[in-house]
Design a protein around this nucleic acid. Structure first.
Lengths: 148, 148
DNA sequence: TTACTAATCTGCAAGCGTTGTTGACTGGGA
DNA sequence: TCCCAGTCAACAACGCTTGCAGATTAGTAA
């Protein structure tokens, strides 16, 4: 995504207004690369601006997604995650325990499909998702197993 | 998944009862390889058994998932999709227009990651998701564009 | 067959993440 | 400074899924 200052410009170009609420969301996303959920963004913005509503955060996230400034990810963690890195093509690794997400670079060109895709299908995106348990959740899991 | 007859056996072994409702769900899943949603399974079962409840379908789908007989997929289509093919490792292609899902075989071994995964992370599954528009939805889309 | 009981059924309410609505408010171009 | 399209907060409603409760039933053991 672009910097908060550049986003101000781009919002105005689109006839969208730049409010303090939106700027606060810009700043949080620009600094947070942990692929936060809307709720997490809301909590972080609310620290600076306690009156902001979750609805406004959703609205701004949707606007940014429409403008291609961020990515809306559905990683099966229950809620959507937002990724401010649209510049570098990358994939994701997800911990099924705590929902932690990390970027992973993979060479898509090396990927071979063993059959043709359906006729006329237009691919918009090929996504690789690595699911598993992070070090921390794995330890918790083994601890729980030991108890039972 | 196993055949309805074998599933009967396996359910009993687990102390689960085999009711007419469950058998109807078994049969629908065994024949339907289109990765139906719970709602779709419900509709198909309801044709034969109009009194079945959606709740029962969900319950049976969850039981089958727990037993590893089917896969519970979150492909970002709004509702979970259920895949009765657990035998052959495969990936999925999804139409973002109509939600159509098709299996795709890909050679995961050919996939190269450009960096190491986080220390201690245990991968449970690496999933490839091809998103796009099917021939039919693409045509509809272009038609809509032409109008506007 | 019969009787018993744990498992299951249905219908409804509730949970969660997200979006629609509404009336008051405000950014920012003229 | 004015003005109004765009935005805000609060609340209701949505779609998918699960929790709950009381009535019903599968399957075992006698």
């Amino acid at each position: 995504m672009h910097s908060p200052e550049e986003l101000t410009q781009r919002f105005r170009e689109r006839g969208l207004k730049v409010t303090p609420q939106r700027q606060a969301v810009f700043r949080v996303l620009y600094q947070n690369h942990t692929h936060p959920s809307a709720e997490t963004v809301y909590e972080q913005v609310a620290e600076q601006m306690p009156t902001i509503s979750l609805r406004t955060v959703y609205q701004t996230l949707n606007d940014l997604t429409d403008m291609g400034e961020i990515l809306h990810l559905d990683l099966g963690t229950g809620s959507a995650r937002f990724d401010s890195n649209v510049e570098d093509a990358h994939h994701h690794l997800v911990c099924e325990g705590c929902g932690m997400v990390r970027d992973v670079e993979a060479d898509l060109d090396s990927l071979k499909f063993n059959e043709a895709l359906p006729t006329g299908f237009r691919v918009s995106e090929t996504e690789i998702l690595v699911r598993g348990l992070c070090e921390h959740c794995l330890a918790k899991d083994q601890h729980r197993m030991a108890e039972a």
